[in-house]
Amino acid sequence: MFRASVAERSAGCRPFRLLALAVLAGPLLGTPVAAQGLSALERQVEAVVRDSWGDAPPSEARRLAQDDTQLECSRVRNEPGEVLRARIQARERERIQYPEGGLVLGDPVEGERIAKDSYGGRVGRLRPDDPGRPNGGSCRACHILEPRDDMGGTLGPPLARFGLTHGTGPEAVRYVYERVYNPHAFQPCTEMPRFGYHGFLTVQQILDVAAYLLSPGSPVNRPESPRQEAPAPLRPAQP
């Protein structure tokens, strides 16, 4: 009897918001979760999500709806088995769209700025980012970008000297573009965001980042030897 309680409470309290969410959940993030078979626990979780973000305007609340890959990766705690890996990989590859002008390296200076900029995409009443300003890629939050980069995070692999091993040929440009546009096409359930798929970065921004990573003159590819190991955390864990 307790099992259904959370869902019942929220469903009873906010019928109109529920309805609005059901209608609006889909378009932005692909297949809405409602279309897929959910477990009893998952239905409770969705009810809690609707209730706990009940005051968010529909334009923001739709961000909470999971698409197929988000749901599947959540279920397996980001460790998909072979079958699921293949399914996600194929599906996400289909979702990659290419620039009309072809895959041409962009501006490495602009790419550096984008890679190191974490502005953009935050919503809400308390501290929203200015939607009129272009989003940054936050690459440095998770990657050490340059041989002497003391600021980069370590959630993702270091990218220092990335271009020296990849060159600037068409395969390298295509690889970086696709990898940033939709990393699940390479590594299903990776923690890296699908920057192109979500439109978080524009196609041109991705080509600029590719230029920053690949160009021989870029600070990424400076000849200094990279650190032997990633530096130890400066601060103790304190989320």
């Binding site: 939050a141 959630l155 978080f200």
Partner: peptide
């Protein structure tokens, strides 16, 4: 563990690894 949003994030994306950092923050 629930991933959502335009960055495909969940708490677990950052908080299930040992000795990792966002920028300099452990």
């Amino acid at each position: 563990h629930r991933r959502s949003g335009p960055m495909d994030m969940s708490c677990a994306v950052c908080h299930t690894h040992e000795q990792r950092r966002i920028r300099l923050q452990g």
